[in-house]
Write a protein that binds this DNA or RNA. Sequence first.
DNA 1: GTGAAAGCGCTAACAC
DNA 2: GTGTTAGCGCTTTCAC
Lengths: 337, 337
Amino acid sequence: MTLGHGRRATIRDVALAAGVSISTASNALNGQGRTNAETRDRVKRVAEEIGFRPNALARGLLSRRSHSIGIITNDTYGRLTLPMTAGVSEALVDHGVSVFLCATNNDPRLARLHLEALLDKQVDGIIFTATRLDLAPPVDLSSLPMPVVYAFAEGPDTSVSFVPDDSQGARLAVEHLLSLGHRRIMHITGPEDFVAVRRRAAAYRACLDGRGDKGEVMFGPWGEDWGHEAVRRMLARPEPRPDAIFCGSDETARGVIDALRDHGLSVPADIAVVGFDNWHVVAAQTRPALTTVDMGLKELGRRAGLAMLDLTQGKPVPLGIKALGCSLVVRKSCGAV
Amino acid sequence: MTLGHGRRATIRDVALAAGVSISTASNALNGQGRTNAETRDRVKRVAEEIGFRPNALARGLLSRRSHSIGIITNDTYGRLTLPMTAGVSEALVDHGVSVFLCATNNDPRLARLHLEALLDKQVDGIIFTATRLDLAPPVDLSSLPMPVVYAFAEGPDTSVSFVPDDSQGARLAVEHLLSLGHRRIMHITGPEDFVAVRRRAAAYRACLDGRGDKGEVMFGPWGEDWGHEAVRRMLARPEPRPDAIFCGSDETARGVIDALRDHGLSVPADIAVVGFDNWHVVAAQTRPALTTVDMGLKELGRRAGLAMLDLTQGKPVPLGIKALGCSLVVRKSCGAV
DNA sequence: GTGAAAGCGCTAACAC
DNA sequence: GTGTTAGCGCTTTCAC
């Protein structure tokens, strides 16, 4: 019985069973101090036998490290949070650090409640993450007695933040289209008040500068409907029509692809389409399957987790906002001209 | 400064500042024992002023309750886990209980690692959840020193489990179609080795028994592609064709709807379609928007959380598998005959 | 009513 | 090398 029923074995039980004092048991188990090799082995064997595992609460009380951190997110339905949390956890689990997940639903009361619980539990640090980069935490995180890391969110300059490199991601998409020979590339994207949307649009324009025409950006609501609507507007206008469309999200791209088909245009033969997000349920199901930009959310979480680990160990971590590269996932929605 | 920098205030600081002993401070703050009203108020005021919050580690060490639980899931990309976790958390946060989220990715090594971390941290309980009902935990949970609750998973009879009522959900869908006058209702669903798939199919058949024809079930892989393929097969056969299709998932339903349109059939005019999942990104975006069954995952999580709360407080909780009702979300994909 | 003392499980000085 | 002692922050007898 490794895990055991009833009362858990304590170091006292180990010491008793091994016929040594508690501190010797502790020393032996932790490899601290000078311990006779034979004693150490015996203690370790006994500990194993009775299924002893040190009480992390007691340890934490003494060391002031709870080996747990909190993630505060505003995301309940989780296309962004879960891969990111998985990445964070992956980076930390080998170090015995567990992750409290706190979904605030953007409610300040809930956020405060969660934060207080985290503080009471002496978490070693807090990671804040959100569904959009330019969203402030629903509760003040600026003067906490532990490190704070922002993942998929932009904290103050004096903190550590990880975000996807939207500019580079957009460049990836546009340059892919350019390299295939497309020259009239349009950008159909989300609402202009999202900083990510503005960055992608700016990068798109910069890429086109000098090559192709100067492009055109259509801002609109997220979602498939907007893809349909944007295509309708686009086709209602005089020629020449674009030979490629870079979409600000996979959902929009799906709407665009469906709308193009409805209008008798073929993807990728008549017009190429690239998306953004690599949200599998959408991108893998468009017809044809969607070439799109992947923000590497899991890796982003992993990086945030590693940074947190360094911070909790007092190691220096570069402050400021670190933009992590995106990658292009090539499927079937683009072809050469 | 409510949250404070640097060293956290302890009950010692409160006692000192209030001019009482530590134990009096403790009594006053917790309303235990006999305490002079005036003293109590003073202590409380002082505690508030210096931003005292009791150290949950120290408390837990003494009370053997850490006020935290663990959720172990095999789900990384989270269409199921996150709403459920949100529900669990919602039920617990008001009681000061925080939730460790452990994504195992079905890897026994990872599961074991997470479980050990949870045990070390003296969690008050563990909730296991999965992407399908008939998935066994990747690590043995049967003899843990704390309660285990299964959410969207079926534990042993001697444990507490919450699952969606797939039979009732399927009945909801089929009876809706029957009430609209449909009589030739077909069922296009997922792989037969999923217990949920079998239950829905059985309920579908039972509903049709005596009314309409005896129906037909097409099992296949999950996903939109299967929806297309199933429709192709269905239309390749001799008349009469169904007047309604009940799909085992929203993704399949989306494939079905798209395929029907491709074949010149109109939804809902020519044929009605119902889905299962109410996965918003899919169901709200089909054209027309999908009428579908909602499993109430958040509520399921909430129920699991409440059960866990009772268990940790030693209250009796009915053992066995509790099936929670689904609801029908009516959108535009069904019409009367 | 209040405070001294013991102890939750563990680690770290410091004697021996 | 090993054991004794003190103490992390808190709650809880139990004298006074």
